[in-house]
Design a binder for these strands. Structure first.
Lengths: 263, 263
DNA sequence: GCCTAGGTCCCGTTG
DNA sequence: CAACGGGGCCTAGGC
């Protein structure tokens, strides 16, 4: 397995392990499974009693400690936040780090270690993403009739005192401010739009309509919009970004079919 | 290492590996290091070319795939979202999952595998947390003078059409609505408070003052508050939650001492 | 189940 | 550097 740059570390000698870990910090990805407790003190205080967890320390000094469930780590620290030191405490392995700017401290104490590995992982690839809010705005700009027949874009990302307006444009009957959301509209979204309208009324002395674009609107949000003379324009996600073709599901079914045939 | 429930899996036979992984899904934590590419199609579309990454699949079917940097995973799936299946595609290992409700698909293809382990991790411990927003509200309720001399709490978490009000109370000169933030105030926070005030003015036909409590206020937020006749009350975090004493570390050491004595 | 708001949110972008 | 807003946000709590 030498060719993969993945190296399992002996856990027989704690002093040796401490040395190996400290010299690997910032150099290789550290993967450590074990039984630990943890204390965090900073923006919040937290204490976690003994349990089996997976600790990952990345080359950028990100720390991520995972428990048995959930996407979110139990404890973590942001990249480049501060030095990370391992040490031996009695018969235990301790990891301590302090985020320099905020003096936030994370201490993890391992009472039992199941596995330790160092990985010189190679990964220079950036993720290609399509379908975020800016893509939705771009799509609407090239298909302005989706917002309203006759709608003409003036500009996007127009800066106001209260934040950047997604789309400014002209309708048949005057200027329109459009706030675009790719997820379901929330009360805060409706209020964000209202602030923009207030800005134009108060600061630029002009009356403008406000349209909130979103795939869906909870009743409360619709009510709030109506009460404040704002408009909701439902543009379902699927309409803009067609759902994945059946090919992918087909692959899934093919797979299960294969499994079935194997038996 | 048998006693730790941590089991390294042979990667010599891909068909065997596929079987082991599929039977481990939902039973044990799967930890897999390897070179992979990944595609996600759902709320967004993303593609990630070949690179070394760490894949973790938890017993609740959470999926977390980490790259070389950052706290946030490159790809993930929420717990209980849908079935996870491994399969052999030509000479590589594929993991495929589909989130049932949303038809979102995540596919990860491993062209090279460095390491695979299954872990029956034991962790029933809940995290003790102190210092979130609700704790700050509780503290203010028992120390109402911090908000304003003479302030008297009527109630907390009062529900309105536009959301729950953190604290309702009476000042010397009338009713006051308090919105509490434990982090620096943002424009959205000020707007949230304004929504509440509008609610009381319009729906309950009463004039109330609005106070935003936060450790710090950017100029723009102060300006918006002033323009809208709202007030800012700075309550530094340190004033409420003094930094941790050494006692916590001491407790930790006490605990280890006890553990040691048991042996 | 949907909806709402908090979060040690993380993260990128902009001034 | 702070500040601001998006996010496949995640997650807990309420209804």
């Amino acid at each position: 397995m030498f060719h993969s740059n993945f190296e399992q570390i002996s856990i027989d000698s704690l002093p040796d392990l401490v040395k190996r870990l400290n010299s690997a910090v910032g150099e290789k990805m550290i993967i450590l499974s074990g039984r630990c407790s943890a204390t965090f003190d900073g923006r919040i205080k937290s204490y976690l009693g003994d349990g089996d967890r997976l600790l990952v320390i990345k080359r950028d000094l990100s720390i991520i400690m995972h428990g048995p469930i959930g996407v979110k780590p139990l404890n973590w620290q942001k990249p480049q936040a501060g030095p990370i030191r391992f040490s031996q405490k009695e018969t235990y392995l301790e990891m301590l780090t302090e985020r320099v700017k905020t003096k936030e401290v994370l201490v993890i104490d391992f009472s039992h270690i199941a596995f330790v590995a160092l990985w010189h992982a190679q990964d220079e690839i950036e993720m290609t993403i399509y379908g975020d809010e800016s893509d939705l705005v771009k799509y609407l700009v090239t298909n302005p009739d989706l917002i309203e027949p006759g709608f003409q874009v003036i500009r996007t990302e127009y800066n106001t005192d209260v934040g950047p307006v997604d789309i400014r444009g002209m309708g048949e009957d005057g200027e329109i401010i459009v706030e675009v959301k790719k997820r379901n509209a929330s009360p805060a979204d409706a209020h964000q739009l209202k602030r923009y309208i207030e800005y134009f009324v108060e600061k630029e002395k002009k009356a403008v309509r406000g349209i909130l674009v979103a795939p869906n609107f909870p009743d409360k949000v619709l009510k709030y919009l109506k009460e404040n003379n704002l408009e909701a324009k439902q543009i379902p996600w699927d309409q803009v970004f067609p759902t994945i073709k059946r090919s992918k599901s087909a692959q899934l079914e093919d797979f299960f079919q294969e499994k079935k045939n194997e038996k």
